[in-house]
Design a binder for these strands. Structure first.
Lengths: 340, 340
DNA sequence: AGTTGGCACTCCGGTTTGACGAGTGCCAGC
DNA sequence: GCTGGCACTCGTCAAACCGGAGTGCCAACT
């Protein structure tokens, strides 16, 4: 059970299987890794590992393949993060430093992550619900049509159009702008929405209608968790490398269309805490052949969203974990800077 | 050549092949469509059609398959748009009427289009280059940090952060805001960018630095054609229904990652003008097995972007064409309304 | 002239068969 | 507890095989 060599054998099996995609036999094993023992010995270990459920043979007289449990032991005990190369680090920082706004950061990271890991990468847009209001701007496009712009601390900007029943003059608009910002600027959006709800009661009677309209869309925009569900996906072409289409590619392609599913897959791991979900450990039985490596990101331990990669259970865990962590750290840093 | 029955035979072949995905033989043809002649007669016609290059047999003693040229004739002469059902029309209008902003319109349409056609749908975001500036807003987040918000006639909103060397007071900021809007509001962005470039020369000396900074990011945002390249994609899961993975699915998956490629695929068809590009007619030889049905959209013949579907050459052209046209019309209408 | 039934031919696709070899489990000996 | 040897299992690959769908052509019919 706590036999060092058996663990070595398991590690060798995982590594070889990931590299070759083929069941690995005892002979090939001792050749490719300097195990210093004979194939027969390895076979005994393999038999034991199989009894304990770490590996499995597709059929008699085939090599062995790691089970989900085997991968689990591998990532928990056996794997060390594969350090990023200098070139990779530099690629990450130059690419992300060049991002001009929030959307750009997200889109560039997801692309980067898929290229680094050669897997399908997923990045959740920073969630709205935990951010604070930075500023609200009102712009009169016509006398009866306002554009309401909501700027959040994460850098996200929401805009909405409001139609008014009666025209509003500039001074009233300025007054309204001040009032709205007074109750909401710097406040978490849930609290801001509540405070704004009271606002129509506090303004001059002739302002009530326009205030009500503006507050209406603001509250709606703040409680609109639609953008919480936004995710960016990249690297679907990497699915082409998967072997089995029907059991692996198709269900995943379908999942990728459903953003809600993706969010559930990513989970809610803390900032800087890597989550690895292997095969059946995940929430969807159709995705029993796929694993997820994910982590949270956000400035200073403040969880704003998650990002990660999904791929076949047979994937390069050490490499993926390192890439996911590296990208998450950079993204966190960028968000922190942009936010002073 | 202008033989009615031969054309009937071609149409029957296309329809059957699209439905069954299998080469269609003379016997099955007369059974499934009431052609009123014997298989032997049909065979003669098929031989002629093959001589003229409209159909092709994969190998001796297989049925016939339409060539790209055959599909071309089919869509040009033989196909009538499959009218949308009432339910479909209603689905389109209720879904799109519920969209809250531009991004929402694009995302909902692309999804809708992929569901209607069961193909991969692509929608280009409205291009920036042909729109006019509606308003520029400046918001002081701190005394030395401005958020510059650019609102365009299409409803697109771009935001940029500016760091100033020296703090700016509110009255100066208001002045600057007025000046910027005076030269740019209502003007096409190319012209607006040019006009803004002159602005720093026209302001009071102590305003030059801040003006220069603001104008800098505005001009950059206006000439940034990055957002011209933005496209939304949906329905990749439908690729799973494709037969051949390597020749059809993989190249397409790769193309879908490259937005530039997608834009080229969509092409630049005029508003309300359906473009059908069949197999090798397209610009990429790797995509010789896929067809594109696309059209432009925009209010009142004003081309703002393109949308369409891509799929195997063997696709339901009448249905796809009808869906693409219907969605494009609704999107155009919505953009028109939101823009008064 | 155009259409039809008949017929011989081609060739694909699925299935069967058999040889091969990789890999195993077990055992006896070191 | 490790190792070499050995008999055995079973999947994979290739060749061989066969059935059937579909064709082209031709002679006869309308």
């Amino acid at each position: 059970m706590v036999d060092d060599r058996k663990l070595d054998v398991l590690r060798a099996i995982v590594e070889d299987y990931v590299a070759t995609e083929e069941p690995v036999g005892s002979k090939a094993l001792v050749e490719r890794h300097g195990l210093g023992v004979s194939p027969a010995t390895v076979r005994n270990d393999m038999a034991a590992l199989e009894d304990e459920g770490y590996i499995h043979q597709p059929h008699t007289s085939a090599g062995r393949v790691p089970t989900d449990k085997g991968y689990r032991l591998f990532v928990d005990k056996l794997a060390t993060l594969k350090p990023m190369s200098v070139a990779e680090r530099r690629a990450i920082s130059t690419l992300l430093d060049g991002a001009v706004d929030l959307d750009d950061v997200v889109q560039k990271s997801v692309r980067l992550l898929s290229q680094l890991t050669r897997q399908v990468a997923i990045v959740q847009y920073p969630t709205l619900s935990r951010s604070t209001v930075r500023h609200v701007e009102l712009v009169a496009l016509t006398p009866t049509r306002l554009m309401v712009i909501l700027i959040l601390s994460t850098g996200r900007v929401e805009q909405r159009l409001v139609e008014l029943d009666a025209p509003v003059v500039d001074t009233d608009l300025a007054e309204l702008r001040v009032a709205v910002n007074q109750v909401s600027a710097g406040v978490q959006i849930a609290a801001a929405a509540a405070a704004l709800g009271e606002l129509p009661d506090a303004v001059r009677p002739e302002q009530v209608d326009s205030t009500r309209a503006v507050v209406g869309v603001l509250v709606e925009a703040m409680s609109d968790h639609r953008s919480d569900e936004r995710v960016a996906v990249s690297g679907t072409a990497n699915l082409a490398r998967y072997g089995d289409f029907d059991t692996a590619v198709r269900p995943l392609l379908e999942a990728l269309e459903e953003h809600v599913v993706l969010l559930k897959l990513l989970g809610e791991s803390g900032v800087d805490a890597l989550t690895v979900r292997i095969g059946h450990e995940g929430p969807y039985s159709e995705l029993a052949a796929t694993s997820v490596v994910a982590t949270g990101y956000g400035p200073q331990e403040f969880h704003l969203g998650s990002l990660g990669v999904v791929g076949p259970t047979r994937m390069d865990y050490p490499g993926s974990m390192a890439a996911v962590r590296a990208v998450a750290r950079y993204v966190s840093r960028i968000l922190d800077e942009g936010n002073q």
